[in-house]
Simulated scan of single mutants.
Amino acid sequence: MTDYPLDTATRLARNADGSFISSGGAAYWNFQSAFGSWALALALEAVQAEGPRAGLLASAAAHFMKPLPEAGLALTVQTLREGRRTDFVRAEAFAGSDRAAPLFAADFVFSDAREGALDYVTGFPEVVPPEQSTLLPTSPGPRWLANYEQRLAVGKPFTAQEHPRTAAWVRDASGRPWDEKAILALSDTPMPRTFFLDPAPRFSATVSYDLHLLCTRAELEALGSDYLLVETDAPRVARGRFSQAVRIWSAGGLLIAVSHQLAFY
């Protein structure tokens, strides 16, 4: 079994009090905090370690309240409700043994998709294929970039675009197949929308986040480790904040997930 970087970075140990402890944030370090993608994947790992869920991940909703350390992040898991078809679970992350206030919290819903009479999806964007897209370089600052191969099909960072819309073909640099945890981590990879409205870098921090997984388990497994298209936009960027919307598509044009986040810059 291959030990992929995402799985190594989200490995957990059990504390005596039943909580979990992590030491894997270094590989997913951003500028001044562990990357949000890592925190989301780590929280899901803790939830699954507490007790595997029968249903597929349906949604996640998270709040980022303080910067996250590379190591020593403790996580607690609480089952809010277990239903016949749907489970509701919360994970909270703390700095070591300090349980006064969480640094990060995420609520998860698990429920397998059901076949129904309706099947509508918005149109797949017209973009050039990965081999004609611009490969984004990695950076010595945000180390998490080395974990992904990203090719921009629409948009150019640090330019004054008319609209902050981008579309990037992305795959795990290690060849890891896509699953719930990997999709969750992928959804926070788009650059801040400010990077596409101003040549000068205006950095941001995610405050609130949500994801809805729209595919079936079979559709998720069929993705393999192929490129996914991450389409990103924001309806408004102003007064130190923006709401970023993400659509994640398979290479064959299937809408896999949607995500939104509020960021302060």
Rank of each mutant, 00 (worst) to 15 (best):
P140R: 09
E149K: 02
A167I: 09
G155I: 06
W144V: 11
L136R: 12
Q150N: 05
L136S: 15
G155K: 08
L145I: 04
P142Q: 04
R165A: 15
A160L: 11
A167F: 09
Q150Y: 00
K156W: 00
A167K: 05
R165P: 01
R143Q: 13
L145K: 13
Q150K: 06
R143G: 04
E162W: 02
Q161L: 14
P164M: 07
P164C: 04
A146L: 00
R151D: 06
P157E: 00
L152I: 01
R143I: 02
G155C: 07
E131L: 11
Q132R: 15
T138D: 15
P164W: 12
E149H: 03
T134S: 12
P130C: 09
T134M: 13
R143H: 10
A153S: 11
S133T: 08
T138A: 13
R151I: 07
L135A: 15
E131P: 04
G141A: 11
E162T: 14
A153L: 04
R151Y: 09
L152T: 01
R165I: 12
N147G: 12
T138P: 02
A167V: 11
S139Q: 09
V154E: 08
Q161C: 04
P142H: 08
N147R: 12
P157L: 00
N147S: 11
L135I: 14
R151A: 02
P137W: 05
P142F: 10
A153T: 03
Q150S: 10
Q132F: 07
H163V: 14
K156M: 11
Q150P: 00
L152Q: 06
W144H: 14
Q161F: 01
P130V: 02
P140T: 10
Y148S: 02
H163P: 00
A167D: 05
S133K: 03
V154I: 15
T134H: 13
S133V: 07
Q150C: 05
Y148N: 07
E131K: 10
A160R: 15
A146M: 02
Q161D: 13
Q132I: 02
T159N: 07
R143D: 05
T134V: 15
N147I: 00
R143C: 01
V154H: 09
P157A: 00
G141R: 13
P140Y: 10
Q161W: 06
P130F: 10
P157K: 00
K156Q: 12
S133M: 08
G141C: 03
P164K: 09
W144N: 07
Q132T: 04
R151F: 08
R165V: 14
P142D: 05
T159W: 08
A167W: 05
P164H: 11
G141P: 00
V154P: 02
L135W: 08
T166H: 01
P140W: 13
V154G: 03
P140A: 04
L145V: 12
T159S: 12
L135N: 01
E149D: 08
S139Y: 08
F158N: 10
G141N: 10
T166G: 05
L135R: 15
P140C: 09
A160T: 09
A146W: 00
